[in-house]
Design a protein around this nucleic acid. Structure first.
Lengths: 226, 226
DNA sequence: TAGATTGTTAATCGATTAACAATC
DNA sequence: TAGATTGTTAATCGATTAACAATC
């Protein structure tokens, strides 16, 4: 698939290199497993997990063996244990503080998103450059002036930053986040921002996704091939 | 990478099968090319395009040959022409109407996003189930009751639907969109929704992306391997 | 012509999947 | 024991990349 522009880091994993695809699928398994745990399901086979995630069962088993062997032959995987292991693998077994830059609609949507808290992500600081927004509330957080960014990120030891600002501010905000010690940047603008070595970048742009999906629409409707 | 859960369709492309990865990169090229066109750049080499998109130049050339040969040896690609060709390939050379379901913060963010219009995507209908939201304005659209969904989608011949509702409503909304004739569903909830054959689904979940990215954070900080 | 850069082939690399022995 | 399902190997498949002849 992508080479991968959306996710890029300069350093390498220790010991064995785990394929990108594996890491991309783990959250998918986790999602379904947490639902199953909630429903009181105690055991799951790779076949069943495959049905629910639309991933080939052989691939699920193969993916998991990168990290150990968590199942019982003839039985399957213990749901509670597997949730626990995948959370540990991903680093989702403890909470992470997030700095959110941009207190517009998108920022508000992100801050108000329950799924974050459920997975241990806490938005603990919100910044905006618009003086009229400073001091207003987003969820239970007061919006802070962008000038406080460096100090707050350092004080709270925040390692994840979310960029939800207008495109023209994206690179500057990213630079400031990185300089303040942020290790992961989630970029919600269409701008291709640069990050220094050691900072992981993840891009999400609705237009990019729409354009991508659009291709298949045209094909199906028999629009002439270029 | 993913097999691909995020994008799934039941039908096939006509003639030659184009790899997913190629289609995923085209919007990336387009993004940069439109910026260059705006800046008055007339010609670009695969090497330069590679720098700007972080994609290997050989891959860019290979990707493009799936659709024809658009460059001049010794010279490069004409920016205006290439923008045009890629837009035609993706089907982004004409406008597309979008139905947005969910008029909360996320819905407002999507409706207010300029990039959509720039690429020919027009949100022409917004729905919500909350009576207090009906009739309020999002951009220049009045929010409609969800009960009007089928009628409006049919009347306006809308083919793309965006699901920005609470998770518990995601599957029902998706079903209704599909039944009304929607061909592409953009799902902004963490729910794994099912779509009927012939409908293309694209999922975007911030938590999924955070969890994915998180893995690399733990690695770099030397957290014990599971 | 000399230099540049494409289009294309072939080699490499890596990921997916089928198959099955191990074992619960 | 018989049946089920994992863990793992090996085969397949496909995508990326290097290299270079074609050609502007």
């Amino acid at each position: 698939m992508l080479p991968d522009r959306r996710l890029r880091t300069t350093e390498h994993s220790v010991s064995e290199r785990i394929p990108e695809g594996v890491i991309e699928r783990l959250p998918l398994y986790l999602n379904v497993l947490i639902q199953m745990r909630h429903d009181g399901v105690s055991t799951v086979s790779s076949a069943r997990l495959g049905e629910l995630t639309l991933v080939n069962p052989a691939q699920i088993r193969r993916d998991l063996t990168h990290f150990g062997s968590f199942g019982k032959r003839g039985v399957g995987y213990d749901v509670v244990t597997l949730v626990d292991r995948i959370q540990r693998i991903l680093g989702a077994d403890h909470t992470h503080r997030l700095a959110l830059v941009g207190a517009g609609n998108l920022g508000s949507a992100i801050a108000g998103y329950n799924g974050l808290r459920q997975h241990g992500f806490l938005v603990t600081a919100v910044f905006d450059s618009d003086p009229r927004k400073i001091g207003t509330r987003i969820g239970d957080m007061a919006v802070r002036p962008i000038d406080d960014l460096e100090r707050v990120v350092r004080d709270q030891d925040i390692r994840i930053g979310v960029v939800a600002v207008p495109p023209e501010a994206a690179q500057e905000v990213t630079d400031r986040l990185a300089a303040a010690g942020i290790r992961i940047v989630l970029n919600y603008t269409p701008v291709i921002v640069r990050v220094p070595p050691g900072v992981t970048l993840h891009n999400t742009d609705p237009v990019h996704e729409l354009l991508h999906t659009l291709y298949y629409l045209s094909r199906r409707e028999g629009v002439a091939r270029v």
